[in-house]
Computed example of a mutant assay.
Amino acid sequence: MREEVYNNIEAWFENYVAGFESEIEEIGTNIELKKNHSFRVSELITELSEEWELDEADLILARIAGLLHDLGRFEQLIKYGTFSDTEQINHIQLGISTLEENNLLSELSDEESKIVIDSIQNHNETLLPKSISPTSLPFVKLVRDADKIDILHIVANYYSNNKQGSNKRLEMELSDKHDISKKVFQSIINEKVVDYKDVMTLNDLKLQQMSLIFDLNSKKSFKIISEKTYLKQIFETMPKKDEVIDTYRQMKIFLENQL
């Protein structure tokens, strides 16, 4: 696959995102946030790819999947004003529909198109289904790692530098109570990614985001998160309750053991 294919899709993506405007300042901010996130995920894939031994064609394909993984977020935000997925408003299905309606993968083979769609479809599943093809699996894992790293980058920066409530959509409109849900606590103690359905408060959300480290796939991913101190930054914005301290300690030890 040629670099030109990526460049054509990138140009379409830029034009597509430019078509979304909102008089609501917070929505406009989040459109820009998701646009930048998409580009950073694509760039991170290049950085992580050394460990995955991808050839040039596979790297371009992975970067396309990374750029498009959140394509449905823009329509979700403009039409429904939220980042919260439901059966009716799911950013993955919105993204795949947009991709198909615009024949965006026309320059790819059927196998390459399937890899991109599989990567989009599975980039934020709590558990990967066993039905994913062996051909798609490395790409899916690579996109998932890059996505998680940049999510931690975004939220660590937001929580550290902004007043609570300044971006309610990024906070999933959750209340800023000090309580930590028992299921959230137990998931982390068991070194599992917190299921979003168990998130009840903003502090639960912060722990859920930190718990993404339990589902990383490469040593380079752990190294980036450790060096950038994302977990520490988020922890410092949380109440120093015993449950918070215990979960942070568990995650810190887990992260150190992967390096």
Rank of each mutant, 00 (worst) to 15 (best):
Q121E: 12
N162H: 15
I234A: 03
D70N: 08
L71R: 03
L61F: 12
R169N: 10
G66T: 01
D85S: 07
S131M: 11
V140T: 02
M1A: 07
F185Y: 13
S119L: 03
V193D: 09
E75S: 07
V41N: 01
L212H: 08
T135M: 12
S136K: 01
T46F: 08
I189R: 04
E43T: 06
P134F: 10
L105A: 03
I9V: 08
T82H: 03
T126F: 13
L44M: 10
R2D: 14
F139I: 07
V199S: 00
P134K: 10
V17I: 15
S226V: 09
E236V: 09
V194D: 00
T247L: 01
Q208C: 10
D176M: 14
S119W: 02
S106R: 11
S187V: 08
L202H: 00
K223A: 09
Y196W: 13
N257W: 07
I89Y: 00
E75D: 15
L137T: 04
F222M: 05
E3P: 12
K228E: 14
L67Y: 01
D110F: 15
T135W: 10
D179K: 13
F254G: 01
L259Y: 14
T82Y: 02
E100M: 11
D195N: 15
I225C: 07
I117F: 06
F39Q: 03
T229G: 11
Q88N: 12
M172S: 11
D58W: 12
E51L: 05
A62V: 03
V194S: 05
A156F: 00
S38N: 03
V17G: 03
I253D: 06
K34D: 14
I31L: 10
S175V: 13
D176C: 15
G95L: 02
I120V: 09
L170K: 07
E125F: 11
S218G: 05
M200K: 15
F13R: 03
L212V: 12
E107F: 03
S187I: 08
L170R: 06
I120F: 03
E171H: 08
P134G: 10
T98K: 14
D150F: 09
K241C: 11
G165V: 00
K192G: 05
I224F: 00
Q93W: 15
K130L: 14
K35A: 05
S113F: 03
I9A: 00
E4K: 15
V41P: 00
E100D: 08
N90Y: 05
P129A: 05
L142M: 04
S38A: 14
L104W: 00
K228Y: 07
I115N: 02
H153S: 10
L142A: 06
E14R: 14
K177Q: 11
L174S: 04
K219H: 13
L205S: 04
S221W: 01
G95T: 00
R249Q: 11
S109I: 04
N102I: 06
N161D: 08
V193M: 14
G72I: 06
Y6V: 06
H153I: 11
L216F: 04
S218Q: 06
S221F: 01
S221K: 04
I64M: 04
R40F: 09
L207D: 02
E23D: 14
L77P: 02
M238W: 07
S113H: 02
G66E: 00
P138H: 03
G28L: 08
E112N: 06
N257K: 14
L255W: 01
L77E: 01
E75N: 08
